[in-house]
Nucleic acid binder design. Structure first.
Lengths: 76, 76
DNA sequence: AACATATGTTATATTTATCTCACACAAACT
DNA sequence: AGTTTGTGTGAGATAAATATAACATATGTT
């Protein structure tokens, strides 16, 4: 099935934001965030964008697929 | 309804690639590319990623939503 | 121990993306 | 004029995202 990686949880934690809070601000159900964080589904581009925006980052920074040469979770 | 902007056509043209070609490489139907280029639907993140990759760019460079401060189509 | 809060799960329903097929149109070429 | 090539459109079918609701678990707090 080839799931994707996401750093949503990492970014969300950095902001001290709860799943429910994020879901709320983004306008989806909390369960949707759960599924997103575990990579179990493939959001629409628009949803990905809203999430990235709420977390103060970009889509490309937030999600990654198996095909990148250089995906690393860097701490800062 | 609030459509999104995309530079797919621009990038595709730059590469001299046809809609059918792109569809093919990306693994979708040509009609899907037509709809994407006209912003009439909201691809899955994975599809957006595949398209960006085939066009040698990133998702964030390829798509934009009404909420950016600074979206410009720049020529290079 | 009881309670509250944050997270995870499972099943079903609804909405939307994408497929499929068929046709239409314009431009370029023979 | 006819043919090819690239692009656009529309309707119906299928697959996948998201909603909804209900329950489960873990952790922290009193």
């Amino acid at each position: 099935m080839d799931l994707m990686q996401t750093r949503i949880r990492e970014f969300r934690a950095k902001r001290g934001m709860t799943q429910a809070e994020l879901a709320d601000r983004v306008g989806v159900r909390r369960e949707t965030i759960v599924f997103l964080e575990s990579g179990r589904y493939n959001p629409s581009l628009r949803l990905a964008h809203r999430v990235a925006k709420e977390l103060g980052t970009t889509i490309d920074a937030l999600f990654s697929f198996g095909d990148e040469d250089d995906y690393v979770v860097r701490e800062e």
